[in-house]
Nucleic acid binder design. Structure first.
Lengths: 227, 227
DNA sequence: TAGATTGTTAATCGATTAACAATC
DNA sequence: TAGATTGTTAATCGATTAACAATC
């Protein structure tokens, strides 16, 4: 809400790269996806005490092209050493910094049904530094759910609790009917990234990023190959 | 294992289109993904008693380009009527036929942990015609799980039960350590399509199609935009 | 220095979109 | 017939890959 100097206020296309927000820089989504793939591979390499890795090795492990690996990484800086490769620990730190996964990320989950409940106990999230700090349901019993004992609030409290925990990241596992209205409230409450499991196209302002995980859709397209 | 006549035995590139299996025809995966999107939209239109739809309407509803809709559909035949559009019920039938979702599809699920259990009760699968008919776990209690009361067998019984139910479609929700070995057994047991929730790159023969749903990876790439 | 591997440019490939004749 | 919309070709766009000079 703070007014910025008029001279800084041009459209994203006018401003130099380093003044743009991640969403504005328009790095292809595919590059960001692969970046998290690299982060995962580097995590394993670091665990295995490997100190350097070449673009060729990384590419082979992930089923990609080595030029693509180099190009992806070069988008964000010069992380490699010619003739040597990439220092694993260093590169991992950089990649996590770019992704924003170099710190614990607090997440809200809305819709504590079968799927929501499972996600509240999903170890993979914790392993990558995500922590679901509060959950919401329209029939909240007021208790705590899952192995992490996440508090479940009534959706009534959505705005208040989001503010309290300064949350910008949410997982949506409500019903089809509720999805759009809950999504609106999440965004009004400051959420800018949503992992949406509800099979509905959400209409939201452009600065909000939604990733769709449509399980039934995955099954349908897989079905084409199951013969 | 049956020998086929040498003359029928050329590489996929040599044979005419109609003699190829879905996987061999090499329709871009993106087209197949959108095809299931169309199926979903057509389902809603049919429910709402809409009788015809134009490529423009379909495109707008799904956030696509109308030329893309027409091109995608034209890949599989001439389903539209110039000057009129596409007959909803008819097109839906065709699309479902192409995807293979025009009948109930029997599915096996391996790994009855938090996520697996949730999927056993996931209504979205039933709604689209998928039925999980058996589940496997390394510590099977022998009972039935979920709202659908799916029988849970010990993984020991994997091959036997797959054969019994003639299953070609599986959902994989086991641990990272078990994933590759279970996947191998699934394939040996006749499975050709796997929806894999385990964050591991599976090494499988080319005729098997694996779709990866990597929830932590989705979170990581989303994290880039949550600022 | 010789060998290896990066960062980057140019070439290729494939997918999306525009345009329009054919058709109802 | 006039109007609308398909199926399809050609143009555009963007992403992937090959190639190689620069660098350690």
């Amino acid at each position: 809400m703070t007014a910025s100097p008029p001279s800084d206020n041009g459209s994203a296309k006018d401003r130099p790269d380093h003044l743009l927000s991640p969403a504005e820089r328009r790095i292809p989504a595919a590059v960001i996806k692969r970046l998290s793939l690299y982060a995962r591979a580097l995590q394993n390499l670091e665990r295995d005490k490997v100190e350097k890795v070449s673009s060729t090795e990384l590419a082979r492990a992930l089923g990609l092209n080595s030029a693509q690996v180099r190009k992806d990484l070069a988008t964000f800086g010069q992380f490699g050493v010619p003739g040597f490769g990439y220092p694993v620990a260093d590169l991992r730190k950089q990649v996590r910094q770019i992704l924003g996964t170099d710190r614990e990320i607090h997440v809200a989950l809305v819709g504590v049904g079968h799927l929501g409940t499972a996600l509240l106990s999903y170890a993979g999230f914790r392993r990558q530094g995500f922590r679901i700090v509060c959950a919401f349901d329209k029939e909240a019993k007021g208790g705590h759910v899952g192995e992490e004992q996440v508090p479940v609030y009534d959706v009534e409290e959505l705005e208040a609790r989001l503010a309290e925990h300064a949350i910008t990241f949410a997982i949506l596992t409500v019903s089809v009917d509720a999805a759009q209205s809950i999504a609106n409230r999440l965004v009004a409450g400051g959420v800018t990234a949503i992992l949406n499991f509800v099979p509905v196209r959400l209409q939201l302002p452009a600065q909000v990023t939604v990733h769709y995980v449509d399980l039934a859709l995955e099954m349908e397209s897989l079905s084409y190959y199951a013969r």
